[in-house]
Nucleic acid binder design. Sequence first.
DNA 1: CTGAAAGCGCTTACAG
DNA 2: CTGAAAGCGCTTACAG
Lengths: 350, 350
Amino acid sequence: MAKIRIKDIAEQAGVSVGTVDRVLHNRGEVAEETKTKILEIAKKNNYQPNLIARALTSKKQCVFASLLPTPTEEDIFWRRPLDGISEAAEELEQFQVVVKKYFFEHYNEQDFIVQTEAILKLNPAGVVFSPIFTKESLAFTKKLDKKGIPYVFIESKLENSNYLAYVGSDGYNGGRVAANLIDFGISKNADVLVVNLAKNLENVLHLNQRTQGFLSYFMDKGNNEGLKISIEIPKSKSDLIKEKLNHVLKQNKNIKAIFTTGSKVYKIARYLETNQLNDIILVGFDPIDQNIHYLNRGSINFLIGQHPYQQGFKAVKKLFEHVLLQHKISKDEYLPVDIINCESIKLYKA
Amino acid sequence: MAKIRIKDIAEQAGVSVGTVDRVLHNRGEVAEETKTKILEIAKKNNYQPNLIARALTSKKQCVFASLLPTPTEEDIFWRRPLDGISEAAEELEQFQVVVKKYFFEHYNEQDFIVQTEAILKLNPAGVVFSPIFTKESLAFTKKLDKKGIPYVFIESKLENSNYLAYVGSDGYNGGRVAANLIDFGISKNADVLVVNLAKNLENVLHLNQRTQGFLSYFMDKGNNEGLKISIEIPKSKSDLIKEKLNHVLKQNKNIKAIFTTGSKVYKIARYLETNQLNDIILVGFDPIDQNIHYLNRGSINFLIGQHPYQQGFKAVKKLFEHVLLQHKISKDEYLPVDIINCESIKLYKA
DNA sequence: CTGAAAGCGCTTACAG
DNA sequence: CTGAAAGCGCTTACAG
């Protein structure tokens, strides 16, 4: 079955191409009868618009918006999804899509709100963002819903929203992967410490999933039978870390491994180095520069990577496919979990 | 500086678009004087053809050829690069590129030659292949060179050829990654066995690089100080494996880990299971189904993945970029090395 | 050696 | 409510 063109449909329906175009784009002003006829022919012949032609001729841009924390020295993590977004934007440039990037200061709810307002004012054809602040994000999704603007979550998601898609990691699985690594590296009766370094409570859901996955592993298959001790260090300040760790390590001399459920492992690594606890195994998340530093020095044994670049890249692609191509897209896309050691980091690209 | 069109060049040069097109495509029949003038204007204004328009109008297809071993039950490894090639082909379909896939029976030089002849007869605009048989591949590259057909290597490469690009893994790095994993999992004085399961000598270069990387790690940074014992099992037949391993493990009771430099680790895993040697750590390459089976059972501790899918995908993309877009492309692209354990395999996509 | 014209498949005013 | 026509930027014969 050769490709059917808009012209062919027009001929078969006995109308002009203009009319066909109108019904295909739902721009009204067409008799009901003509419309159904055309739609029928299109469907029967599985009409697929020629995107090349469309791109060439259409002068209207499709504007998407992204909203992420500003990547800073401290929070370089957000650099990679941003790169992915940029790359996708570049690839889709030929189809007249543009991505306007909005940023907010991390941990600043007010700024987040200001930026969402700006986006709503822009009235884009789609939005990519990470719902870091649950309450504010939920309010944002409500407004997007009202305007009929589709949105894709990256990094984490809000289940009780009407999101188009999610591209991100599976925290539970990430926790299990880490558990397997630690289980491999320690003896049967050694104890394990789980450290939650949450800056705000905001992240708790995410971290909990990782912790849950981690613990579940030992419930159903690990060799290790030691204690699993879990602590929380709400503000990841050095002195607080020192105090808490001093305490727990003193109480439990048998701790041979530490699992940190976030990307600030380097702070734990620093503590371990300072206190010459080099034989404690340390596993954490995200190959950001500070972590890579300690990975190379051997203080961190493994980092779990979660394809932040792909998260940004795929989110934009999904928006494109949904809005421009009207394809059905998969709602939840869990990216693979990468295990990174000091050797594999050399060629690592997230 | 706004985008300049072929029409603009024509105006500035005082000629017609047809003439401009002729010089831009080097189809001759243009006065030398006119030609230089046009080229000058194009260069000065940094003329970039509109690919969308070109794709829409051009009816000539661009045909690439790929040549890989037939993916079989036994050698499922070749399925993934093939998928990558297919996916890239699909994406480039709109630009009229077609990839004709050729296959040869693995380990059959004769068939390989037959297929290369067929490809030469097709006279494609580019070729993607893996130079598995050194001698035959070299002969093939010579003929391609003579016809001016660019070729991209995947999986391994022939240095002494005029290849356009290579997309694949870095065996040396892969070996080091494996070494780091084993070093992490065994005690300081345990011994390590390196097994080369080469079916033919063909693979020796590749395997040697992995072995070299593996050993180099222990030379310059590992904790482990035990013996590194290396054996070769030329035909990967079960009884031969049994015999050889029985022998070496009997001689060296202190072997606590085995590194297999190829994708047939599952054969070693089977041996270990049969002989109840479950506490020997086993690391090998490639998440093919048979290996995944033993990874899940715990007999294989880690698999190293090398993005075979990406190899196929990127190779075709590179050909496209070189031939159609005339972009400069990077000659050697080393893909990252993935560490896979029984937990991360769940979400793994190569 | 060169130009004028048609065409790729779609979209966009505009006229009726 | 509908059609005819121009145009997107390039390529392709064809005529001279």
